[in-house]
Amino acid sequence: MIKRLFDLTASAVGLVLASPVLVPVMFLVWLQDKHSPFYIAPRVGRNELPFKMIKLRSMVINADKSGIDSTAANDNRITALGQFIRRYKLDELTQLWNVLKGDMSLVGPRPNVKRETDLYTPVEKKLLRVKPGITDISSIVFSDEGDILKGQPDPDIAYNQLIRPSKSLLGLLYIENQSFSLDLRLCFLTFIAIFSREKALLGVHEILRSINAPEHVIWIAQRRQALVPTPPPGSDRIVTSRDGNPFA
């Protein structure tokens, strides 16, 4: 009840406060190609129910028709204005409308496309028992997701090998330790990450210590070493193909 009340209040206030920034940027997005400044992104929500996530468009029209779900920093589908939008997470602000509607929460596991959730292991399916969120622990740890995927021959496979396993682990940890105070801390750290990723990661480290997270998860979240391919939670196999089920 407290979480929903917080979501309603914060998303309503957030949309009002963000409007002086969002409205001009929306106009600029429309001006570049005379198409809608919004991208309606199909996502899988709580209890595996589909919903339409609203994003400020950062890519060319019909970018989703390419069949590629993951986006590298050098993806040629991203417009020049889109690079700015993504750098400052402006495309996430419009998702406050989804929070207001009740499709999402401010804090929760990030929603994914059906092609990706179809690959989830039974353990990862637990992520779909709660409302997805605009931010969570993994959103801060992997705020540089585009840079990680940059130069990868297949961004989707790279995502499933390098990012998804740790993202899912952190999402599961959040669900196990969910609290109002944790949500407040993650909202604050998400804001800090825009200006100082190092300070935000330090805050995540403190959170993980406070909830007695396993050492290997804390080590991963520090992001001091290069990521290596690992199996997703609940599997002993590394994804090797775009549409290959890792636990079949």
Rank of each mutant, 00 (worst) to 15 (best):
M53D: 10
D147W: 05
I54D: 10
L81W: 04
Q95E: 13
I61F: 12
P50W: 08
R223C: 03
K167D: 07
I140R: 00
A226H: 09
L184T: 02
V23D: 10
F180G: 02
L184C: 08
S66I: 00
A193V: 00
I220C: 15
I175T: 11
L15I: 05
P132F: 11
F38W: 06
Q32M: 13
E206S: 10
L208V: 09
Q95T: 12
L202W: 07
D7L: 13
G102Y: 07
G244N: 15
I207R: 01
C187Y: 06
L56G: 03
K3S: 14
R87T: 05
S143P: 04
P229Q: 08
L28C: 07
G45M: 08
G82S: 04
W30P: 11
I207Q: 02
L169Y: 09
K3H: 12
K150P: 11
G171P: 01
A72T: 06
V130C: 08
A80R: 14
D64L: 11
R164W: 06
D103E: 13
L162Y: 00
I40N: 00
K101E: 13
I238F: 10
L162W: 01
L49H: 15
D144W: 02
V13R: 04
T230A: 15
S139A: 13
A221C: 05
M59P: 00
L182F: 04
V99D: 04
L81G: 10
P153Y: 08
G102K: 01
S241R: 14
S105C: 12
F84Q: 06
Y120S: 13
F38D: 01
E176Y: 10
V21K: 01
S241M: 14
L128M: 03
Q95A: 15
R185M: 01
R237Q: 15
S210L: 01
N160G: 09
F51A: 14
V141M: 02
L186F: 00
T121I: 15
P231R: 13
S168F: 10
